[in-house]
């Protein structure tokens, strides 16, 4: 029972990242009709926003300490972050400690800007081209973006810890009446789940309850008619692309403490996110979220020892197995609509 609850928690947490990325992918596909293979790269750039801010906050001035030597035997250069100097060592350390949550503020404008530039500068020119061309160009863009990050940050993962207050784990089991150490879960992963829930709720509320969202929903149903009714839907869709980029970026920022960001992390999520989108149903936002959490939970269950002992290696293929079963039984995915990508 304990391990069951534990894996549900875990699946929800894994699912959070899948759902956020798939949500953004679906926003783009549902509005602009473009299959954006560069979406994983946007997630990765978000994570590197956290890395960048943490480095910016740690920018230091250098002083030579003649009493110590460095690895080459020369006098040691001691680095002190400017924020220590400006706000005092304690406040300075606290600011650096909170780099990842602070990076959210930085990532939102940056990601929206990247989204705008991507859409206006490149993807716009591919709306009338076949899906295969769109896939190729966005995939190429993803490679370019990740090579740029690699050139600037190196190929190694960059540790980007959560604030000290959120390090370590919480014993849920005790809280639920179990023995200690049965259901423990890291604080930051809980933060991630809550954050994802807020973002997903926010996106849905935005689409459901604002006039802007209403127009976008109308445009997702029939882009041409919205135009004939006098609405400049392209402009709104560009904004939606920016929003989708921001969702992916924020998912990346908050993911940085979970696994140290590296240039390749976007690709690791990309294939999975597409499976999520296909299982959920192309173009369906609720489907993307539902499938994200569903696949996260299934993946967690598949990695349980009890399950692996019956079917070894099931954890490696479960996601694809589910995708095959869904596509055979419900070719449009769990919540897909007729006519999407079928012309």
């Amino acid at each position: 029972m304990g391990s069951f609850i534990l894996q549900i928690l875990n699946g929800l947490d894994k699912g959070s990242a899948y759902a956020l990325i798939a949500l953004g992918l679906t926003l783009i596909f549902g509005t602009l009709g473009v299959v954006n293979f560069a979406h994983g790269a946007l997630f990765m750039i978000g994570a590197f926003c956290a890395v960048t801010l943490s480095r910016m906050l740690s920018l230091s001035f250098e002083e030579v300490d003649p009493t110590k030597t460095d690895f080459l035997g020369q006098p040691l250069v001691v680095k002190t972050p400017y924020v220590y100097d400006w706000f005092g060592p304690e406040a300075g350390a606290a600011i650096i400690d909170w780099a990842v949550p602070l990076a959210i503020l930085m990532a939102i404008p940056i990601m929206i800007a990247i989204g705008f530039i991507m859409e206006r500068g490149l993807i716009k020119h591919f709306y009338k081209r076949p899906h295969a061309d769109q896939i190729l160009v966005t995939f190429g863009l993803a490679i370019v973006l990740q090579e740029i990050v690699k050139a600037n940050f190196g190929a190694n993962p960059v540790p980007t810890p959560a604030p000290t207050a959120f390090q370590g784990s919480f014993d849920f089991g005790i809280w639920l009446g179990f023995d200690p150490n049965i259901i423990i879960y890291p604080y930051w992963r809980m933060v991630y789940f809550a954050f994802a829930a807020v973002i997903i709720g926010g996106v849905f509320a935005f689409l459901q309850f604002t006039t802007f969202g209403m127009v976008v929903r109308a445009g997702m149903a029939d882009r041409e008619t919205v135009g004939l009714l006098g609405i400049n839907i392209d402009k709104r869709f560009t904004i939606m692309f920016g929003l989708a980029a921001a969702v992916a970026g924020l998912a990346g920022v908050m993911y940085a403490p979970i696994n140290s960001p590296n240039f390749h992390m976007g690709m690791d999520f990309l294939v999975l996110s597409f499976v999520v989108v296909v299982v959920g149903g192309m173009g369906s936002l609720p489907g993307a979220v539902l499938a994200g959490f569903l696949l996260g939970i299934l993946e967690s269950f598949a990695s349980m020892n009890e399950v692996k002992s019956i079917i070894p290696g099931i954890d490696q293929i479960i996601i694809y197995l589910v995708a095959i079963v869904i596509l055979l039984t419900r070719p449009r995915g769990l919540m897909g609509r007729k006519g999407v990508m079928e012309d």
Binding site: T211, M214, R217, A218, A221, D222, T225, L228, L229, G230
Partner: peptide
């Protein structure tokens, strides 16, 4: 009929009105 099936009747009506101030 080209209407937005995923929207309510009222929401459908709002789209052309919003266009007026778009």
């Amino acid at each position: 009929p080209e209407i937005f099936g995923n929207l309510t009747v009222m929401e459908n009506m709002m789209i052309p009105l919003l266009a007026k101030r778009d």
